[in-house]
Amino acid sequence: MLNRLVQWARRRSPWVLHYNSGGCNGCDIEILDLLTPRYDVERLGILKEASPRHADILLCTGPVTRQSRDRLRRIYEQMPAPKWVVAVGTCATSGGVFRGSYNMLGGIDQVIPVDLYIPGCPPRPEVIIEGLARLLATIDVPEDKPPRDAAEPPAEQLKSVAADEGEASDDGD
């Protein structure tokens, strides 16, 4: 019963954080566009939050540049569980046209685990909404588990994060 309530709440109150790890702006303005009158995602309970600590879903755009990598990982670490990551746009999915560059690591999933990919260059706001809706529909809180479980990042990821912790000061920016 309680788990049903929690599941209901999580599906209806996804607060998102947006991070551009090296994209061209196209996806970013489409994400910002979600908030504006034509799309108005507040209808679905989606709020764009400013601090990683307040967010449930990380919307990532752009391929990951070498300079962005640590920051992206740190933002992910700062988010409280349960959390989800959505790669918005072709670049975030695979690196897109920028594959092969000396400063590129590829898609978001090279750095943090991704729950949903939304390809498109850039994806239309409708498509982003559709993607988010599908992600929300998969959120469930099984009856036999306590409501606070998080998708464990792969072991290898954890290791590299641990290596980072020396310099990360968690100042929330």
Binding site: N20, S21, G22, G23, C24, G26, G62, P63, T65, Q67, S68, R71, G96, V97, F98, G100, S101, Y102, N103, M104, C121
Partner: peptide
């Protein structure tokens, strides 16, 4: 440098036509 994608170098490795697509981004 957070969004430095090395486009100037990438452009040297793509054809004139492909570059239209790249530079749009």
């Amino acid at each position: 440098g957070y969004v430095h994608r090395g486009i100037e170098r990438l452009a040297e490795e793509r054809s004139w036509v492909q570059n239209v697509h790249l530079l749009e981004r």
